[in-house]
Design a binder for these strands. Structure first.
Lengths: 149, 149, 149, 149
DNA sequence: GTGGTCTAGACCACT
DNA sequence: GTGGTCTAGACCACT
């Protein structure tokens, strides 16, 4: 589960983490029953305070997306209804499209041309897909290890 | 000078306004000597608290980008050196490119395809350019009025 | 709004505060639209860390019981439906009755007689009612001040 | 020795167990020399992790209330002095009275009337006594079996 | 090992 | 003034 934190950003770290975990759940990178990294591990990996991660997990738990089991870990919950799920997805995409257009608007103001923006898009898509693939294969190998063991 | 505020965003309103004014200065929509809208007018137009705008102007003033003249208004300052200006531009573009790639990363996680993202890009670029043009022409007509008067 | 914290208790402070605020909302001591004390004030009054109160308010907010308005304060929300409200009340009473019987069970184990327990009950009821009344009258006088002013 | 666990409670399970064993010792349900159930049996009976019970016994052992004899079991120790015993009893009762009044306070907030609370008290006392009796008679029959064997 | 609570203190943003 | 986020660090409880 890749999570990328933008340090200088005005978006609070906790919110960045939360949105990416939500996206992972909606996209299927995280499936019901999967365990999230422990609060301490994720905190260390992201070089973030433990409490920050705890807060994120607590909020996702209040949303009903995950469940924190004392002494065991934090786990993705099965989503109650497909309808609800696809509604969440629609909401997330709407929000995404707003952000996207805001960013582009700023790019144009900064004098970037359509051609430059298209190049950046292509590069960013490639980057993101590479990350996703790398992760998926890492997960597969982890799973096969588990099966062997 | 068009400014667009995204209400739900985690990015604070003041920062949204500030970044867009900076971008307008760098892109030339706002030129040295131009006056910014009065604090009260902008606040009303954006449906934002007056103090929020005051603080934005104060910060831009501290940055040396604008000058607040008591009783007159707020004006764009000539940028001290071209070098500095282009350095600022480079910084802003760097930051932009970081944000851009983060947004795209999230879009990919949400399952958007390259094709969808390209369509969104084209639409957003068209939107942004239309806004810029509308503004430029509005400004031209305002200027000719002033000349006539 | 009286809140009583038992320091040595195994029940976490935050949970004690949360349950009492919930009870105040259900009992009508806190009505929709009422403002809660600011996080800092309540923290100081209870001699508790600010973050502890913040967490309480955040959770009540996630429950939909209150709303935190940035820069304004925290306010009791109107409860969506009477049905829901009375269901919450039933839940709270069920939980109460469980706790109550557990406490009594322990009292009996400690060798307290029925008569002693009844005396304690009468005394505790009187205490609690006195507190409620004192608060209600304090509130009335506050309201009449406001009306006069 | 009856022990009742309230699952949802904020009071940790281990503390619930510990307090009840202490109360049993003070009330005489458990007498010096009596054996506690084995760690595994109690854990199974209460559907609790073995380690949880182990830690409870360890703490009671550290308090000098019981003694863990390797390979034999855990036994109630004779209390060093009556004075100490009655002091412990007083402490426990003080703590009990605090908890009791807190619980009643919450009940009043939830709108329960004095009459309702008195009824609940009577019912809870009856329940608790019934449990104590059932246990006592079970213990007597166990003892007579032992004598016979 | 896991999560849960709490503190003290800092700095930020909105009204 | 109000709430919001984050850190560093402590100590506790459950598996």
């Amino acid at each position: 589960m890749h999570i990328r934190i933008e340090r200088g950003s005005a978006t609070p770290i906790s919110r960045q983490i939360m949105e990416q975990i939500r996206a992972h759940c909606l996209s299927g990178t995280l499936k019901p029953g999967d365990s999230l990294p422990s609060v301490r591990k994720l905190a260390q990996r992201l070089a973030v305070n433990v409490n920050t991660v705890v807060r994120v997990y607590e909020r996702l738990s209040a949303e009903g997306l995950v469940e924190m089991r004392h002494g065991e870990g934090t786990f993705v919950l099965p989503q109650s209804a497909k309808a609800e799920n696809s509604q969440q997805m629609a909401e997330q995409r709407n929000q995404f499209s707003l952000e996207f257009s805001t960013v582009i608007h700023r790019g144009i103001l900064l004098g970037l041309t359509a051609t430059e923006l298209r190049k950046m898009l292509t590069a960013s898509i490639a980057d993101a897909k590479r990350e996703l693939k790398a992760e998926a294969s890492a997960q597969r190998s982890r799973e096969s290890e588990t099966r062997t063991a």
